[in-house]
Design a protein around this nucleic acid. Structure first.
Length: 432
RNA sequence: GGAGGGAUGACAGAGCGGCCGAAUGUUCCGGUCUUGAAAACCGGCGUGGGUCUUCCCACCGUGGGUUCAAAUCCCACUCCCUCCGCCA
């Protein structure tokens, strides 16, 4: 949720910033107008309320002293109370409308966020490949690495999409044997690398509507999520959801900031608008495992938190020896809650595509305001900032590893950093 | 799932429907005293909103209701505790 006070103070600036990401200026003006109206009604209702309270006190006194005009006073109070009730209802109505519209407004983009309408305007800021640190040219992938992961996986018996579809429908992958073990190794590997600074959390895989609101996933993206209406629950689309609500409603000690958490969870996405697009193999699935990094930080120190998450995500990709590029998302492609987002895309030679495997975002106080997470400053309080990023999303990493590691004989070489998590194993061979 | 008990400020813990935003204690922060500390004493100490005011309003788990007036009465829900049942 954006800051209503700021919007009130500089409506033109906020409107212009939101216009960069495609928000119609009229919807901003509407919120401003509702705010004015709401405050007018609030004053009206509150002054009536004050009079009711005052009169009620007098009724009490009159009754106690057995004054003759007590009945008279009480019926006056009753009339006033009715008026107050009506005034409050009018005020609440406008207030609810205001809140609903405010909730619909996306975050104000950072000035650093490049201009642009959609994903085609995202800016590539750098690229990395194994050997780059030794001044080697970009990797030339061999012909045997040009086999899509679903074929490689079928050869080796490590991915079973048909059975996944039988159990849960299409786009719910099922990994088996060394494929499943590889996934487990990736999660353990990442969590261990973050252990020095991030507390590991294993949150519930479902969240209440209120929890989904905090991150901004609701009310806007309801169609993209799995819902369990009977229990007012949603399957989490990312660990960002529970992590952002971890300290919901709390006032934090500023000396503790940044508070950093990491969590490995399954992530569920309906991918409603994406039917038929990029759906082969693991390119786009309804459920995947991901390790998330998250920080509550002081508004003046968000960049350190942001850079740390980004460095860690990149560090994992480098350790896994995968080619990747870094994209600065343009204003038009930003997620609702984000002020600035950097995506990491891994190059997967078998499908010859760049696959998004991480998204690192700074949310300013947009989520903290919704989740009501503050810290003490002087004798007042301020909202913290939130930062998060994937490190990393494993389904697509799995695909890239299987394609990149493929050898002429069809077996797949596993990066050295994972071997410790696979009992020293370095190669996935076809099962006998 | 069944039966009972509970939810009040950082914590503990009071609160006949009418000066209750809330006693009291502890913690914490100032001050006095002290060479210093402790103790003692004095003072302060929730959050948010409003034309941000020695003013007003809201908030005593959440949402409704009764009333001139609700922390206090009524209803529903949530969470916690105890017991029973079931269970990885």
């Amino acid at each position: 949720m954006i800051d209503l006070v700021q919007l009130r103070r500089e409506p033109d600036e906020v409107g212009a910033a939101l216009a960069r990401r495609g928000v119609d200026e009229s919807s901003v003006r509407e919120v401003v107008a509702l705010d004015v109206e709401h405050r007018r009604l609030l004053q009206e209702a509150e002054s009536l309320r004050a009079r009711v309270k005052e009169l009620s006190r007098r009724v009490g006194e009159a009754r106690k002293n057995k004054e003759a005009d007590a009945d008279q006073l009480q019926s006056e109070a009753r009339e006033l109370s009715d008026l107050e009730r009506e005034a409050r209802q009018r005020c609440d109505e406008v207030g609810e409308n205001l809140r609903a519209r405010l909730l619909q407004l996306p975050n104000v983009p950072s000035p650093e966020t490049p201009d642009g309408r959609d994903e085609n305007d995202n800016v590539e800021v750098r690229r990395w490949w194994p050997g780059m640190e030794d001044d080697q040219p970009p990797v030339e992938y061999a012909e045997w690495q040009r086999r899509p992961h679903w074929d490689v996986a079928m050869d080796l018996g490590i991915l079973d999409l048909e059975t996944g579809a039988k159990l849960a429908g299409s786009m719910f992958p099922l990994f088996r044997g060394d494929g499943a073990r590889l996934l487990r190794a990736l999660t353990a590997f990442a969590l261990d690398r973050h252990r020095d600074a991030y507390e590991e959390i294993r949150p519930p895989s479902v969240a209440l509507t209120e929890t989904m609101m905090s991150t901004g996933h609701l009310p806007k993206s309801a169609d993209d999520m799995y819902e369990i209406p009977r229990d007012d629950l949603w399957l989490i689309p990312t660990a960002e959801v529970p992590l952002t609500s971890l300290r919901r409603g709390e006032i934090l000690d500023p000396d503790q900031l940044p508070l950093r958490y990491t969590a490995a969870t399954a992530c569920f996405r309906r991918e409603a608008g994406a039917a038929g697009r990029d759906t082969r193999g693991l390119l786009r699935v309804h459920e995947f495992d991901k390790v998330e990094l998250f920080a509550y930080c002081h508004p003046d120190h968000w960049r350190e938190a942001f850079d740390d998450v980004l460095a860690r995500a990149e560090g994992l990709l480098r350790a896994l020896r995968l080619t990747y590029r870094v994209l600065d998302l343009c204003a038009g492609d930003l997620g609702t809650s984000s002020a600035r987002t950097v995506d990491l895309e891994v190059y997967s030679p078998g499908v010859d595509r760049w696959l998004e495997v991480s998204s690192v975002s700074w949310f300013r106080d947009f989520q903290a305001r919704r989740a009501n997470v503050r810290f003490r400053e002087g004798d007042s309080t301020r909202f913290v900032n939130t930062v998060n990023g994937s490190a990393l999303a494993w389904a697509r990493i799995w695909a890239a590893l299987v394609e990149t590691g493929r050898r002429p004989d069809g077996s797949v070489e596993i990066p050295e950093v994972l071997s410790g998590y696979l009992g020293g194993q370095r190669v996935i061979e076809a099962r006998a």
